[in-house]
Structures are given as C-alpha cells and as structure tokens.
C-alpha cells in the first residue's frame, strides 16, 4: 500500500493557471479508497511509467477522461484515451508553494 501523502514538484505548462511550473503540491493517495474520483478532481496519474498531473473532466464507460487545464499545451486523454482508476496515484489536496 502506498504512503498516504506524496509531495510533487510540477514541471510543464499544461495545468496553468492553477499550477505553475516549479510549484509543489501535496497529494492524498488514499482519497479514492474512501470515495470515487469526481469530475473536477486534480489527480496525479501514472501513464507509460511517468507520473503526470491532470484534471478529471468526465467519466466514461471505459474510465476517467483527464485533461490539462491549459488544453492547447497538454497531452492527456485526448491522446492516450480514458484512464483506469488503478492508474490514479493520488488526489491533489494542497499547493505547498
């Protein structure tokens, strides 16, 4: 089982204006043990071995459709398709700085 919290530093522009590159965020990695991921949640997901941060935009029958807030500069479910719940590492709960 994962440690309940992780601290991440954001690289890239796809979550602007909410997260700027260099900002740190805290995730709660047990959030989805207690409740289902919801539309609007900002989550850290694992895609092709890489942890990326995106927002859940809609729920599809084959998973969760995630997208960057800064859509023109984001690679997300529009490219790799909806993701399974098991790919969600944690939910962002705090911006550290």
């Amino acid at each position: 089982m994962r440690f309940p919290f992780s601290r991440y530093k954001v690289y890239g522009n796809s979550m602007l204006p909410v997260f700027k590159p260099g900002q740190e965020v805290l995730t709660f990695n047990w959030a989805h043990f207690f409740s289902r991921p919801k539309i609007g949640d900002i989550v850290v997901i694992k895609v092709k071995g890489k942890e990326i941060v995106k927002r859940i935009q809609k729920l599809c029958k084959d998973g969760y459709f995630v997208q960057g807030d800064n859509a023109p500069e984001s690679t997300d479910s529009r490219d790799f398709g909806p993701i399974d719940k098991s790919k969600i590492v944690g939910k962002v709960i705090v911006v550290v700085r």
């Binding site: 530093k9 941060v53 500069e73």
Partner: peptide, 9 residues
C-alpha cells in the same frame, strides 16, 4: 521527499 510530476507533453 519531493518527486517530479509532469504537466507537459
């Protein structure tokens, strides 16, 4: 510990 999380292509 701080880990990288990517928000880019």
């Amino acid at each position: 510990p701080v880990k990288p999380v990517f928000a880019h292509c």
